Simulated assay, not measured.
Amino acid sequence: MIALSSSQIEHWIGAFFWPFVRILAFLSTAPVFSATQIPIQVRVGLAVLLSVALTPALPEMPPVEFLSGDGLLLLLEQILIGVSIGFAVTLIFSAVQFAGSVISLQMGLGFSTFFDPQTGVEIPTISNFLNLIVLLLFMALNGQLLTLVVLDRSFTIFPVSTQLQLHANAWHSLVAAGGMVFALGLAIALPVLGALLLINIALGVLSKLAPQLNLFVIGFPLLIILGFVALALLMPAMPVLVQHLLNVSLQLSNQVLLQAARG
């Protein structure tokens, strides 16, 4: 008769459970995988499949009791690592959404909002349009596969261990990336904002030369038309732009992992 102790059973389950927690946390925050249209059951099932596929190639998991203090700390650590990687990749869509919000405001379409299926909230129409374009380009560039590669590397850079290794430098880099969202967003919107600024200057000069003209009747449709023309001229550069944003987000993910592991 084969006798199994509770510690052996916990060790066997832990070999699958700890990677599953990190992968599920990543899928809950990463672009594409965290979309509201994807049911939770599908997300959990995908996390199970990835855990089964990755577990044989991962380092041996530490023997930890699930309900002990070390087990709870290890659970929290895996959640934080997975969420951090997903948050770093979401930088792409956050920057584009901010750029769309600024463009919408300058075009006079700030009041026009639309439900975004990626985030599950209402955002300006231009932001939603740019998000869809970036999402298609992100998947065309195999961005979702590259993010899974970063997730796989995280188990090598930052293996599952009972020794708490989360250093403050990693979280400082992740928080500082919030400023990067505004910088990249303004850089994306700059060509359109420049064109709209010239139109506003021209309308200001026109109001001085011909005060009898109703600038609200002329300026509002003119800003919308020229704003869409500027967006159309920006579209050919979108693949290069998304590739650059993808590289920036992947570099940020690797930087956070390395700093978290080494301090």
Rank of each mutant, 00 (worst) to 15 (best):
L166A: 02
S127Q: 04
L130M: 05
L135C: 06
W171P: 05
F129C: 05
T147A: 15
D152K: 14
Q163A: 14
A177F: 05
T156L: 13
I133Y: 06
D152M: 15
F115G: 10
V175H: 06
F158Q: 00
L186E: 04
Q165A: 11
L145A: 13
V150F: 04
A183V: 13
H167Q: 15
Q144A: 08
P117F: 09
L141D: 03
M180V: 13
L166N: 04
A170G: 06
M180I: 15
G143A: 04
D116H: 03
A168S: 14
V150H: 00
L184K: 06
Q165D: 15
L141T: 05
V134L: 04
H167C: 10
G178M: 07
N169E: 14
I133L: 15
L136G: 11
S127E: 03
L164I: 11
A183G: 08
F155P: 00
L148C: 05
L184C: 05
L174I: 02
L130P: 01
A168C: 10
N131H: 09
G120K: 04
N131Y: 07
E122S: 15
S154N: 03
L164C: 09
D116M: 03
L151S: 00
L164H: 09
H167A: 11
F129P: 02
A176S: 11
P117L: 14
L136W: 11
T119C: 08
L130H: 00
E122D: 13
L174Q: 01
L132D: 10
A168D: 15
L184I: 08
N169R: 13
L135Y: 10
H172L: 14
E122R: 14
N169W: 06
L136M: 14
L132A: 14
F182I: 02
Q165T: 12
P159C: 06
V175I: 12
A140N: 07
M139C: 12
H172E: 15
V134K: 00
L164E: 08
I133D: 04
G120L: 05
T162E: 11
L130W: 00
L137E: 05
I133P: 03
Q144W: 10
V149P: 06
P117D: 08
F129H: 05
M139I: 14
P159E: 03
S161F: 04
